[in-house]
Design a binder for these strands. Structure first.
Lengths: 235, 235
DNA sequence: CGCGGCCTTGATCGCACTCAATTCTAGTGG
DNA sequence: CCACTAGAATTGAGTGCGATCAAGGCCGCG
């Protein structure tokens, strides 16, 4: 059993009114009177690579919004192996299940440095009783989560290893520069697509050899996508 | 390309107040004044086996509640093959994405006879502006959908063919009598777990041979589960 | 009885897994 | 600056599981 290490640092109480990414997040269209309803502290917390934001089965009392960084959601399957069920990025919300369940459904683990706003469930409930605007935002998040989950199943877990790896690369393109993709450790990629890390490595190498992608570092994480068509139409 | 056949029959306008399964569905805790807000007709519609309740990419204007029967949600993947992303049963809600998106995210197809309440999106929106109770119900549904999707990925699409088939059988147990399971065509089972129909057939036969399950009909749909432990702990 | 649809079973092939060795990088300390 | 190390990625060889191709059986139905 691998020991669970939780490394985090409190960075202060968040000032939601002046949040830099407020237009992306849950509180986007709250007004001044809404903010006055917040009676519990919303903390700004930083996690380092590999740290656990929360764990499957742990008591769930907070919803988190990702300010910066990338987080993987991991479900632990019966025989001890782990399965990555989703990847979440800046602006995404994790732990929404805390609103209904008293435990979290999955592990949330930082991939690199991550900072989050940790919002007590009580705050969400108070606000949502008062503000129909927050309701819409919340349901929008749920919708996004379901769509992502279905997408994950339909594209990343389907077809040959070659196709799966191509789809991971395409999925991990940068939103602002789609010619660049940052992918994960070969093991994580395998856990996302139900492949072994050696198979993932082989297929990545093959795409490089065929000229569809080009490494931008020496550790196999950042690539330039030179021929997206080719990746898309992998037979 | 397989022609899409839509077969349905209008069974009347639903009387939600006296609905037989009202305690299971979205409108469970509405009161009389809430019902008076419903200004568009909620139809009660029947579909026969193989009929399409709605299609991926079609214009989305209704949310449906399943009164009786079973429905499969299917995403069509690039190369023409189809992938079943979820199975929904009595009391479940389908097409929730209509609240946000103007198209449906997947095909919904009847497995056997199905009857549904077809609720216009406008009705949900009106009610949800007025009734925080409906809000909670809606989010509960979203939560269930996400959890089901993740579960699907973590249990049905993981491990050997033997394990996947075992997990499908366990998942399809009757809620009231867990010793009975009704499974689907071998092709549908394959599309759920990313296996070929021949492989599914072989593994089902093997479980029968090993005495873990016992056929209750001659067409390979209903089985008695004799040794759930064995299915659970398939190595 | 013949037909079509689905399930089952058999034989063979190939892709991804397994086991294993090697290379590369970043980090550490002399 | 180089030696050393740990961790990750890469590459190779051989195996096995599930896909593929193909044949046959069973059930329901006209």
């Amino acid at each position: 059993m691998i020991p669970i290490h939780i490394e985090h640092a409190w960075k202060g109480t968040a000032d939601c009114r002046n949040c830099g990414i407020r237009d992306m997040v849950l509180f986007a269209d709250l007004n001044e009177s809404d903010f006055n309803l917040i009676h519990a502290p919303i903390d700004d917390i930083a996690f380092s690579n590999g740290a656990e934001l929360f764990g499957e089965g742990r008591q769930a009392g907070h919803v988190m919004t990702i300010r910066t960084g990338v987080v993987k959601l991991v479900r632990n399957v019966a025989d001890g192996r782990a399965r990555i069920v989703r990847i979440l990025k800046t602006g995404d919300v994790i732990g929404l299940e805390a609103l209904f369940s008293d435990v979290y459904d999955a592990d949330a683990i930082a991939l690199g440095d991550v900072s989050v706003c940790k919002i007590p469930v009580a705050v969400i409930k108070d606000l949502s009783a008062a503000s129909p605007r927050l309701h819409m935002r919340l349901m929008e998040r749920w919708h996004r989560a379901v769509k992502e989950a279905d997408d994950w199943l339909a594209t990343l877990n389907f077809g040959t290893a070659r196709q799966r790896v191509a789809n991971i690369i395409l999925k991990m393109r940068h939103p602002n520069d789609p010619t660049i993709a940052t992918i994960f450790s070969r093991e994580d990629m395998g856990s996302m697509s139900d492949l072994k890390l050696e198979t993932v490595s082989r297929e990545v190498s093959r795409w490089v050899k065929e000229g569809a992608i080009e490494p931008l570092d020496k550790i196999g994480r950042r690539y330039r996508i030179k021929d997206p068509e080719k990746l898309q139409n992998a037979e």
